[in-house]
Design a protein around this nucleic acid. Structure first.
Lengths: 169, 169
DNA sequence: GCATATAGTTCTAAAATAGAACTGTCAACT
DNA sequence: AGTTGACAGTTCTATTTTAGAACTATATGC
């Protein structure tokens, strides 16, 4: 499978992964949320090769996650700024940070703490249901085929449910 | 930079990315949350090469995201099941799904809908502050050096803040 | 004995990445 | 006028990773 074919898949994970599903894109994004904007700064902070950095920045711009904006003339130089589409990736980055904070820290503890300016407290991000506000756990979620599902997806899912209940016996 | 050196970094994003920061790991995880468990089923659903699939499953087991459990004897065969550490990745996967649903769907609409069994409604995942319950947006979050920060991180962050306010003038 | 099922491993060619050097533009110094 | 330095890339070769296909191992059922 190629990178490009991922974009075409009828799965929101696959399509998102086509944009940010590699190591460097995710680390670039992390830095964007820490207000890093310029090529040299990304490069020196990340240690990524210049070749790959240029490639990933282009890709993130192409997908509308970043925009390339001039910040000086003579010579014209550009910086990379999160668009709204990019800012909307904050929950993804925070979910990743929180899992790392929970499961991957060493004895020294968390590298960063996050303060919520609105309430003034140090916080953890929590994922909740938009309807009832309760925290979401995998076992409490049931999946249905949506309008954009592949043909036959509903049938497949029904078959899968039958098979799963059979296996559970 | 090598994969292994990422694990060592004092950054929760980098450490998490060392575990799940590649295309196939994220798609494998998606399928895990859809109750896929067996090698052949991952392979046929994902279209990943068997070589890479075996490699990624081993890695996810090594990091404690999945466990390899026998489900039959003669011959002994194994399936891959999410551990609690793996289940805790649900917010990451849901954040990715939600961004894809918001920004990457075509005219047909969402491929999948999610029902919250607890309240019975179709929902979107929302990331909120653990302290005040308000939704989190990037601009309302301020970052502090934590106990596990690199030496000099506090100073670096202060310098960065100064530089940013200077640039804003 | 032969086909089928499952979970891998092994092989070669193609693609991506690392690491280093190089390019182009302009300001500022000597 | 020439040299140095900053910045944002591009280009080059060597190494690593991935794709794609074939092969291995173990056991059941025909």
């Amino acid at each position: 499978m190629r990178w490009d074919s991922l974009e075409q898949e009828r799965c929101s994970v696959a399509r998102t992964v086509a944009v940010i599903g590699d190591r460097w894109s995710l680390l670039i994004l992390r830095d964007c949320f820490l207000r890093v904007r310029r090529f040299e700064e990304f490069q020196s902070r990340l240690g990524v090769t210049r070749h790959v950095l240029a490639d990933r920045l282009k890709k993130l711009v192409r997908f509308g996650v970043l925009r390339r904006a001039p910040y000086q003339q003579n010579p014209t130089r550009y910086e990379y700024i999160l668009t709204q589409k990019g800012l909307d990736l904050y929950p993804v980055v925070m979910a990743i940070v929180h899992w790392g904070d929970t499961h991957m820290v060493d004895e020294r503890g968390r590298p960063l703490l996050h303060e919520h300016k609105s309430c003034g407290k140090m916080f953890d991000p929590v994922m909740v249901c938009s309807e009832c506000g309760e925290p979401i756990v995998a076992k409490q979620v049931h999946v249905h085929a949506g309008p954009g599902a592949a043909e036959g997806a509903a049938e497949e899912m029904a078959a899968r449910a039958t098979e799963l209940s059979a296996r559970a016996k």
